[in-house]
Nucleic acid binder design. Structure first.
Lengths: 132, 132
DNA sequence: CGGCATCCTCTGGGATACTG
DNA sequence: CAGTATCCCAGAGGATGCCG
């Protein structure tokens, strides 16, 4: 196969990474990983998420077929969310990235520190040069 | 091991997914996958990216230690970008997600269409109900 | 050529208040 | 309890112009 990347495929990957790479989707998927959960429980579990964003996140995941929403018409109302089969199947790939991040977190952090250090030094140089 | 998810790990994963899940990083990483590339070449290859965003994306990747930037002080200036070893090692996990997206693209699309259809119907119902 | 600086717009997302 | 609706702001990102 000649060197050739399917651009549309790359863009789809990029798009989907943007979708689940938003602020809350991964957290929610992970929390739903071990079974159904109610809205309030999710809200408690995913620390820091607002009611609005949890709703929007769940709707988006539901739309993509990753999450199933079940309403029990009791009073007070009870709504349960769970991963679909499709949603479950995404856990593997996500954890592949997750494992990479975990294993390389130190290198990344070191690289950032190093980069910032150099940058500050360069800036200092520039400043000194500018001051004559 | 009891049911227990390391929240900070999940958040790190989420954070990193947000970082590389931005609008351009994956495209750039993929384009750099088969060797060094100059700024203008990258700009041409990554269709739609603005000069500004390509610069910012490359800086962020460089800061994370995923991309190496080499300046050849010729005239006109020549700058080459390439994946570091760390950057190369990220291609695997990304392609894991990429493969998943590729394999399940149809299901996702179908789920979206279905969801939107239901939603429109529900909205139509609501409208009718409201009109009495 | 390979940027940085500036301006402007549009969207993500938080806070709050209201409903069934 | 599980949302919806509204307001608001910070930051992402495009367009343009200047520079070494």
């Amino acid at each position: 196969m000649p060197k050739h990347y399917d651009l549309s495929k790359c863009q789809t990957v990029s798009e989907m990474l943007s979708r689940i790479g938003d602020k809350w989707s991964v957290l929610v998927i992970m929390m739903l990983g071990d079974g159904p959960s109610r809205f309030s429980d999710l809200k408690r579990a995913v620390v820091g998420v607002s009611q609005r964003m949890l709703t929007l996140t769940l709707r988006a995941l539901e739309r993509d077929g990753l999450v199933k929403r079940t309403v029990y018409p009791t009073v007070p109302p009870r709504v349960e969310y769970e991963l679909t089969e499709l949603g479950q199947s995404l856990r593997g790939p996500i954890q592949a990235v997750g494992g990479w991040v975990f294993n390389n977190h130190d290198k990344i952090h070191a690289a950032r520190t190093d980069f910032d250090k150099r940058n500050n030094i360069e800036h200092a140089d520039t400043k000194l040069a500018r001051l004559g």
